[in-house]
Every structure is written in structure tokens, then in C-alpha cells.
Design a binder for these strands. Structure first.
Lengths: 100, 100
DNA sequence: TTGGTATTTCGGGAAAAACCGATATATCTC
DNA sequence: GAGATATATCGGTTTTTCCCGAAATACCAA
């Protein structure tokens, strides 16, 4: 969770967009299998479709957001589910107020 | 004050450094003429010397931080003084908590 | 095992950012 | 006015980021 790494992760329109979507996944993703988005997160494929960029690009973006600490991921079978790490955002909010 | 623009401005080691320095200017800059750093800010030249990059680079960085809303500038004679816009940091802290 | 689907990783071309030196502008002093 | 100093802007090279397609890996199901 290096500051610079976090800000770089946030310096891209699509990545910011993804974070927004994951804030209210039920609102932003179709849910044909009634997944518990809130608990388990959203799989890469859904995010990719919505973003409209290639699968590889989105995979890298998600990995980047995770390395920065803003997302957590959980593999379940052939799917990897990503969700927000709300604690990281709270921490970042505080960092901005105190450290930056 | 676009979010993306702010995060891009924060995505550079030197620019982050400058923001830190301007947080406690008396601690970080020599003050031969007893300027009121807190009130009027610090001139470009001082920041440039401390950063160790060229004058043009630092001028652009400061301009970038200002366009993002993180700094304010005030020209006084041949000097331009930059200081932090603390309100912007508070706002950003809140944005992270609520919007991002 | 074979084939199918989800995801990650790799290699690379195009676009953007970093950073520089040179030049332009603004203001001061004489 | 001329010359000096502080800062801003411009043009360009190097480095990094963006984003892609292809290939590799992981898992599942038959």
C-alpha cells in the first residue's frame, strides 16, 4: 500500500469506473445466476464486458488495483471474484487528510 | 477539480514530495529573507533548488498541481508563490470516502 | 484424457508522461 | 531604455502507460 502506487492505480478513467461499479455491483451488473455480489465480489468477465476493453487489459487493471490494496480477489473454481477493500479507502481518506 | 486530474497530479514522486514540503515550509526551506511562508507560500526557485530538477520541470509540476486545485499561486513582483490549498485536500479526503 | 471456459501473463505498437534545454515573458533596478 | 532575475512556455528525447492479440495457465466436465 504505497501512496504513489495507489495514486497511479487511480489515475485511469476505466479503473476509477470499475471502482464505482463495484461499489454497487447489484446496480451495475446483470446477475443471471443470482450471485451474492456483495459478499463474493464480481468475476472478471462481467467487469470486462461492461468496460468494453479486452479481457487481458481488464485482468491487468484488476490486478493493479489489487496490488495497490484497493481490491481483494478470491478464486472460486474457474472464476476470480474481485470486490472493494473498503478499509483501504477509509485508510486512504485518512492518509490524504494527515499524510499528503 | 476533476478526480482523474487530481490523481494524475498525485502520481509522481516529486510532486508528492513538493506537497509534503509545502505542508511545513519553515521546516523544509531556508528562509534568508524571513518570508512568511505560511501566509504567502514559497517561490518557485526555492522549490526547484530543493527538488533538484530543472526550473522548467518544476514550474510545470507546480502549474499542474495548481490546475488540479491542490495548490494556489500568487504573483508578487518577479516571484510566484505557491502554497497548499488545504480545503482541496479536505474535499479530496471526503471524495475518497464517499464518491470513489 | 479431451475439449471448453475463465483468467492471467507475455510481447509489442501507439499514446502519454517525465524531464530536459532553449526561448519567451514579466518584473525589477539603474 | 539596457541588463539582471524569476517564472512560464515550447520543442524534443526518453521513459512509462495504455491497450491490444496471442499464448499460457487453471479449472471444470464428460
Amino acid at each position: 500500500m504505497e501512496h504513489l502506487e495507489i495514486f497511479k492505480a487511480l489515475s485511469n478513467k476505466t479503473r476509477l469506473q470499475i471502482l464505482q461499479w463495484l461499489k454497487e455491483p447489484d446496480k451495475h451488473f446483470p446477475n443471471p445466476h443470482n450471485n451474492d455480489f456483495e459478499r463474493q465480489g464480481v468475476c472478471v468477465g462481467y467487469i470486462q464486458q461492461k468496460a468494453g476493453l479486452t479481457q487481458s487489459t481488464i485482468s491487468e487493471y484488476l490486478s493493479m488495483l489489487q496490488k495497490a490494496g484497493l481490491l481483494t480477489s478470491e478464486r472460486n473454481g474457474q472464476w476470480t471474484y474481485y470486490k472493494r477493500n473498503e478499509a483501504a479507502f477509509k485508510a486512504l481518506s485518512r492518509i490524504i487528510k494527515t499524510d499528503i
